Amino acid sequence: MTRRKLPKWLLYTLGAIILVGLGIAVYVYKIFLGPSVTDSQPYFYVYTNDTYENVLRRIRTDNIVSDVKAFDYAAKAMKYPNSVKAGRYKLEKGMSNRRFIGNLRGGYQEPVKLQFANIRLKEDFAGFLGRNFEADSLQFISILNNEAIAEKYGFTTENFYTMFIPNTYQFYWNTSADKVIDRFYEEYKKFWNEERLAKAKQLNLSPIEVSILASIVRGEALHNDEMPMIAGLYLNRLKKGILLQADPTVIFAHQDFTIRRVLNRHLNIDNPYNTYRYKGLPPGPINMPPIVAIDAVLNPAQHNYIYMCAKDDFSGYHAFAETVAEHQINARKFQKALDERNIKK
């Protein structure tokens, strides 16, 4: 039995259909599944209230994908224009439109890992937050300086800064400024657990006062292992009703952090942060104290020292004393060392 050959016209037609089908498959693959995202930047940001047109314009301007028309077609096919969600989206070179658009449409953004320490002023902290969130630094500083908001959390605008515990946190980039502050308050309450609260009570200090003192300890200490000694000294002074006379508070009062040598003329400033003139703790912290400083105050070294002076070897450690006579000897050694190095201010 002989097989009948297909007519040539039919073979040509079938071949054309196959070629068209392959072309369509290749085109669809390129649009949806093929490599699309470039390496122009590591993240793509979609802002609150952005429209699809805004998103598409930045994708084109920032060269986010290799073929903007293909992205646009895929986005519309996947109904993304009606599902724009704010966020910080991680980009990977070669990521397909389907995956990229799926993340955008689903709001699958990568959290911001927020890690901070040693931020001196709340203005600096507001700037730091503004660089890591959609909200800018002005929004954050307006909250930190808002008396009603501070009172809502149990603080004043002077001591509000003690609410922020240096640590590592995760947030979504588009978290609003007020929600960010709410989250820090929740972390603050977790930090001040029953054990820490009990230790603060034994010292007859509130958590706020502990943090203020810890900021002074942080200002004095160059080495973490000396913090409990310094904390014990200032606690001794508080118990005896002696002026704290902490040089870092004088520098803070002047707002001149270039001062390396506190002189008599610096001590005359009439400012509540000047602990050479005002008894007790200042009204707020002079920096953002780290956890190690807070815990040093809660677990101070037990001793009778009420005086200290930086050692003349410039090791960053201090010479401690119980009497004025001992302290004057230590102070003269340090003053001589400063003079020898021509450190005048």
Score class of each variant (00 low, 15 high):
residue 144 L to K: 00
residue 43 Y to I: 07
residue 72 D to A: 09
residue 11 L to W: 04
residue 29 Y to Q: 00
residue 202 Q to T: 11
residue 101 I to V: 09
residue 30 K to F: 13
residue 10 L to V: 10
residue 34 G to M: 06
residue 280 G to D: 01
residue 22 L to D: 00
residue 300 P to K: 07
residue 22 L to Q: 03
residue 312 D to K: 11
residue 298 L to Q: 03
residue 215 S to W: 11
residue 49 N to W: 12
residue 68 V to T: 11
residue 254 H to T: 01
residue 313 D to V: 06
residue 258 T to Y: 05
residue 260 R to T: 11
residue 303 H to K: 03
residue 41 Q to W: 09
residue 18 I to M: 12
residue 168 T to V: 12
residue 193 N to G: 15
residue 219 G to I: 02
residue 272 P to E: 01
residue 97 N to L: 10
residue 172 Y to F: 15
residue 329 I to F: 00
residue 285 P to M: 09
residue 252 F to A: 07
residue 321 A to R: 03
residue 224 N to M: 02
residue 291 I to H: 00
residue 301 A to T: 11
residue 174 N to H: 14
residue 95 M to D: 11
residue 78 M to G: 01
residue 285 P to I: 06
residue 48 T to W: 00
residue 86 A to P: 02
residue 74 A to D: 04
residue 171 F to E: 08
residue 342 N to E: 13
residue 256 D to H: 02
residue 31 I to D: 05
residue 88 R to S: 12
residue 303 H to T: 10
residue 145 N to A: 05
residue 1 M to A: 14
residue 318 H to V: 06
residue 343 I to C: 02
residue 47 Y to M: 05
residue 328 Q to P: 00
residue 257 F to T: 05
residue 9 W to I: 13
residue 188 Y to K: 05
residue 37 V to F: 09
residue 127 G to D: 13
residue 259 I to V: 10
residue 258 T to G: 08
residue 57 R to W: 08
residue 81 P to V: 05
residue 121 L to S: 12
residue 101 I to G: 00
residue 218 R to Q: 15
residue 288 M to V: 09
residue 241 G to D: 04
residue 40 S to C: 02
residue 148 A to G: 01
residue 321 A to P: 11
residue 298 L to W: 02
residue 37 V to K: 08
residue 124 D to G: 11
residue 80 Y to M: 13
residue 329 I to K: 14
residue 337 A to P: 13
residue 198 A to C: 00
residue 187 E to F: 07
residue 5 K to L: 15
residue 49 N to E: 15
residue 139 Q to F: 08
residue 151 E to K: 15
residue 319 A to G: 10
residue 322 E to G: 02
residue 344 K to E: 13
residue 185 Y to P: 10
residue 336 K to A: 08
residue 111 P to H: 11
residue 256 D to A: 04
residue 266 H to P: 08
residue 151 E to V: 07
residue 27 Y to H: 06
residue 305 Y to T: 03
residue 298 L to E: 04
residue 282 P to R: 01
residue 243 L to S: 03
residue 43 Y to M: 09
residue 169 Y to P: 09
residue 246 A to C: 03
residue 33 L to D: 12
residue 248 P to Y: 10
residue 131 R to S: 14
residue 299 N to D: 08
residue 50 D to I: 01
residue 79 K to S: 12
residue 136 D to K: 13
residue 332 R to F: 12
residue 177 A to I: 14
residue 129 L to N: 12
residue 127 G to P: 00
residue 98 R to P: 01
residue 314 F to T: 02
residue 122 K to I: 07
residue 65 V to K: 06
residue 341 R to W: 06
residue 276 Y to A: 04
residue 91 L to V: 02
residue 112 V to Q: 07
residue 278 Y to N: 05
residue 47 Y to E: 08
residue 9 W to T: 14
residue 149 I to N: 01
residue 271 N to G: 03
residue 202 Q to D: 15
residue 148 A to K: 15
residue 101 I to Y: 05
residue 156 T to N: 06
residue 241 G to K: 04
residue 178 D to W: 07
residue 52 Y to W: 15
residue 327 H to S: 10
residue 154 G to N: 05
residue 103 N to G: 04
residue 128 F to R: 09
residue 143 I to S: 04
residue 149 I to H: 07
